[in-house]
Amino acid sequence: MTTRSTPNTSKPARKAHDDPKRSQWNFRLYVAGATPRSLTAFENLEKICKEHLTGQYHIEVVDLLKEPAVARRDQIVALPTLVRKLPPPVRRIIGDLSNKERVLIVLDLSSQT
């Protein structure tokens, strides 16, 4: 909880903290083909989930090259984009998730061990 100083992470943190065990962690990762950056993002995400959310997460990978219409439907601009669908609220992260500290703060995982 010490790193949770930025105001935009305080609200979701409280919710997750209220009932962390029952939260279903549901991620969707948007990529365009198996580019090195897509792979890096996926690897980073999986590593973080394994470390912090063992057995409680689900990752869905959407390849926009195969489903281009999804990009419009889900308002995707930058890639890779990671969307945390659950627990609410929905959060969006762009980039290859290499800044692990930042990912943890944004996804409010720093309290999960």
Binding site: N8, P68, A71, R72, A78, R92, I93, I94, S98, R102
Partner: peptide, 29 residues
């Protein structure tokens, strides 16, 4: 007509990214 909605407060950056999503959207249209 494709409305691209970008809200800075809803987007966090954690590393390298590109605008391929925009390319895909535009290319598809």
């Amino acid at each position: 007509i494709d409305y691209v909605r970008i809200e800075r407060s809803e987007i966090e950056e954690t590393g390298e990214y590109d605008l391929e999503g925009l390319f895909v959207r535009l290319g598809a249209l």
